[in-house]
Write a protein that binds this DNA or RNA. Structure first.
Lengths: 332, 332
DNA sequence: AACAAAAACGGAACCGGTTCCGCTTGAAAC
DNA sequence: GTTTCAAGCGGAACCGGTTCCGTTTTTGTT
């Protein structure tokens, strides 16, 4: 079946060291080069990657740990990473952890054991065990989505996105605001976005803001929204993620309210679905694919021991759509 | 750093062949077993997978080729495959081809070169080059989503889903129907669904059906829908995929028509988004995750040369939602 | 033409496992 | 008390590459 370097050597009538040199750009004479080329063409030889990696004690594979595959943010980021890595002749290996932090840890060790060149973690929460694992494995690590002083990270500009979203909401005249956030364990989504938003509020005109906390999934957000609508009758929901906004949207429909007249909604993320639905969702769009690409570049830099910034901040963009009333000035 | 089997052997005072036997369940005495266990515990030794694979000429990795990561069907299927493989102590390696058939071919050869145990292809179209590649690499292959007589395949029951959708639409009283399909190169989506649908129509009462063809993406479907609405004023759009249905939905909004009163819509797929949007979409739901799981099981059977059916058909379910008017009897 | 330097090449060791083969030992069988 | 056999173990070869080192050949210089 598949031939080995010895086969090629025999066919070409040279030593296998010569074939190896030929393959790796060592010095080989014109005549032998021809012979080897011919032999390789004839047999369709390609080197056995295991033998290579065994010797090299290293691969050109970058492991990517992802909490879930069925999320727009995750898949876009993966696509970005993958595209860029391919271009630089690296391979991506995905480990889906199904939102289990424990599995993340396992994946780190497993990747290290497989001698991967580096690890990219689409992070949600960085625990002590993560730190411990990263330190133990001793291979380059890059965090996406969360910041940590000890590791290289690439984050979205959650703070400023929150800030600008706050300004935007105030500017549109909303004064009775419900901010529907998530656990503060998630620094990026739970803390930074809220902080930025709060800052904008504190700089703006007098207004009423209630802060709530819910889960990341749509049904939970929907349930929370029902309660909040009953309780405090806000004129706008500022949701910490697009998914939460979708939950609020469903609740709003069920209550027979119209968007944005009775109730406005905003999200964060820029998921594709926010454009498809009707009314389309005003949101702070992050650039997941681009972030993945630069993450890949940075990872390769790290692998090759080229210096890179410890922290990179990816940009965002507020996208104005139909779920916010952009004309009327509400409550004065 | 990471220790080798020789280190363990030295530490335990035995030959490395003994350590290997210990690891692989050969015969080892009680005393030496203890010593080896101790040595392994002390060093945290884990075998080098490259050395193992080099010798074994095989891995326990199943390669999965997927045309795109950012699709509900794809990600759910991948999740199913991954979960199941993990449970059976196999690993999944994903190759995203960004909808390039050429890259699919490359991936097949690349997987073979990496000595993967098997290949699962989330298929869209099977070309001669595919067949050629599969025959050349000589490792187990399983197709998901498309059927081919030469290879093991797992398909969704497109024909019957189409058939039942046809019955359903007729039963609800619709008689002026636009069927918005896709290229017939895609046997499953482009041919089978339509065939089933046609069959149902032919068995039903007199009615008017126009068949159209569009692309898989939302904007293209939207554009097609505009034209069709102008031309033939159908009372219902039967769309070959949920994404196409979403495009039609957008067109419908833009035209100021209300769903389902003025125009009803159905899809195929059962994507998550179809439940989130308003009105929610009536659709034929396929069980992607489950399909992925059984695909994984079948693949492992193939790898271990256990016989399996050449063709497996995954089930479906018509989900009735708001985008079809279930009360009124339309045009008589 | 003589000689130094550089290029070309072969041989062997090595990466870290697995497996085959053969030797030793102790227990069971007769 | 031999013989028999299996369990336990070590040694060596092997998987398919890369790399070091030393020898031969070529090239260039004077």
């Amino acid at each position: 079946m598949s031939s080995t370097i010895s086969d090629i050597a025999k066919l070409a009538g040279v030593a296998k060291s010569t074939v190896s040199r030929f393959l790796n750009g060592g010095s080989v004479g014109e005549a032998t080069r021809k012979k080897i080329e011919k032999a390789i063409k004839e047999t369709g030889y390609t080197p056995n990657p295991f033998a290579q990696s065994l010797k090299a004690k290293k691969t050109n594979i970058i492991g990517t740990i992802v909490p879930r595959l069925d999320s727009y943010a995750a898949s876009q980021t993966l696509i970005g990473i993958d595209e860029q890595l391919k271009e630089m002749n690296y391979q991506m290996l995905i480990s889906n952890t199904s939102q289990s932090l424990e599995r993340e840890i396992e994946s780190i060790y497993s990747f290290a054991n497989q001698k991967l060149a580096g690890i990219i973690l689409l992070a949600t929460e960085i625990t002590d065990k993560h730190i411990q694992a990263f330190e133990a494995v001793n291979i380059p690590v890059l965090l996406i989505g969360q910041e940590h002083k000890e590791f290289h990270s690439l984050i979205h500009d959650d703070y400023h996105a929150g800030y600008e979203m706050g300004q935007y909401v105030l500017e549109k005249g909303y004064r009775n605001i419900a901010y529907l956030g998530v656990t503060e364990k998630d620094i990026a989504v739970g803390v930074k976005r809220k902080q930025g938003f709060k800052q904008a509020i504190s700089e703006g005109p007098e207004c009423q803001v209630h802060y709530y906390e819910t889960e990341f999934n749509i049904p939970a957000a929907q349930a929370s929204a029902y309660k909040i609508i009953k309780e405090s009758k806000p004129s706008i929901f500022v949701c910490a993620t697009d998914n939460i906004a979708l939950g609020v949207l469903k609740a709003t429909y069920s209550e027979g309210l119209t968007i944005p007249k009775d109730l406005a909604i905003t999200g964060f993320g820029g998921y594709e679905v926010t454009e498809i639905i009707h009314p389309s969702l005003t949101t702070a769009k992050f650039f997941y694919k681009e972030a993945g690409q630069t993450a890949a570049k940075h990872m390769v830099d790290l692998v090759n021991e080229r210096p890179i910034e410890k922290l990179t901040i990816s940009k965002y963009e507020i996208i104005e759509r139909e779920s916010v009333d952009t004309n009327s000035k509400h409550i004065l």
